[in-house]
Simulated assay, not measured.
Amino acid sequence: MTGFARAEGRDQGHAWTFEIKSVNSRNLDLRCRLAPGFDALEPIARAAIPQRVRRGSVNVALAVTRTAAANQIRINRDLLDQLIALSMELGGATEKPRLDALLAVRGVVETVEDADGGEDRERLEAAMAATLQQALDHLSTVRLAEGARLVHVLNQHLDEIARLTDQASACASLQPEALRQKLRGQVVALLEAIPSLTEERLAQEAALLITRADVREELDRLRAHIAAARDMLAKGGAIGRQLDFLCQEFNREANTLCSKSSDVELTRTGLALKAAIEQLREQAQNIE
């Protein structure tokens, strides 16, 4: 399932933004791209996201900026002492080096950021973790809304599969009289091909022909799969993998129906069933 969420926070001279994107994937693939110095938040993200997302490719990005001047000026005294000594050596003891010239030398005056104290750092990371949870809440809302729309689409595909299953059941070749007429013709053909065929062998061949022509079992299983899929959609939750498996079972029954069919109308219906099942499978891969 796809989704995008963004949440912002501010504290202790910092401003930050979490962005989370998710796209369809068979498994859960999590990637984090965090601002330098905030790697401690990655384990928090990796622990929190699987509780909300079971399936999909999820990218988490954290951007952090300073909002307050928290810099300090520091003198590189080792470098300054070396410059003073060198100036005295080259210019003589009577000529003192100018302070403004020394401070202008690159590297003598350094600007450094305040190091966050232990407690302050923990509080900052806790505030960022709370913002991450806000972004995940928003992502869950977006994904749930998409899931609700997909349920309607999936039910439409199930309606089409149910219609085609009923159509296959109504085919003239499946009616008892049609089966009997077809069997009589096949028995006559057997006797003409093998005149010495015994009654026992003839009964065996007739039973085999009936079994091969009977697709009622496949149709019953298709109806059972339709009912199971509707139950899953009504229950909700992370049902994507279950639906994937059920689509495989749908397809297996449709393939068997087509292989058993010797009737043009039934074969056409079986092929339409396979197309409808493939559409169901493609949508099932988009849900969690």
Rank of each mutant, 00 (worst) to 15 (best):
M1K: 02
T2R: 04
A7T: 07
E8N: 12
R10F: 09
R10Q: 07
Q12E: 04
G13P: 00
T17N: 13
E19G: 13
V23Q: 02
R31V: 10
R33Q: 08
G37L: 01
A45P: 05
A48D: 12
A48L: 10
V53I: 13
R54N: 15
R54M: 14
V58A: 10
L62C: 08
A63L: 11
A63D: 12
T67D: 07
T67L: 03
A68L: 13
A69T: 13
I73Q: 15
N76A: 02
R77K: 06
D78Y: 10
L79P: 07
L83N: 01
I84P: 04
L86Q: 14
K96Q: 14
V109T: 04
T111Q: 03
V112D: 03
G117S: 04
G117H: 05
G118N: 10
R123P: 01
L124V: 01
E125R: 05
E125S: 05
A127L: 03
M128S: 09
Q134Y: 08
L136I: 09
L136G: 09
L136N: 05
L139T: 00
T141V: 11
T141G: 05
G147E: 01
R149S: 15
L150C: 03
Q156D: 12
T165Y: 08
A168V: 00
S169R: 15
L174P: 13
P176F: 00
L179Q: 10
K182P: 11
L191R: 14
L197M: 01
Q204N: 07
A206S: 12
L209G: 04
T211M: 14
R216L: 15
R223N: 02
H225C: 06
D231I: 11
I239P: 06
G240F: 01
Q248E: 14
E249K: 02
A254D: 04
S261T: 00
D263T: 10
D263H: 11
V264K: 14
I277M: 07
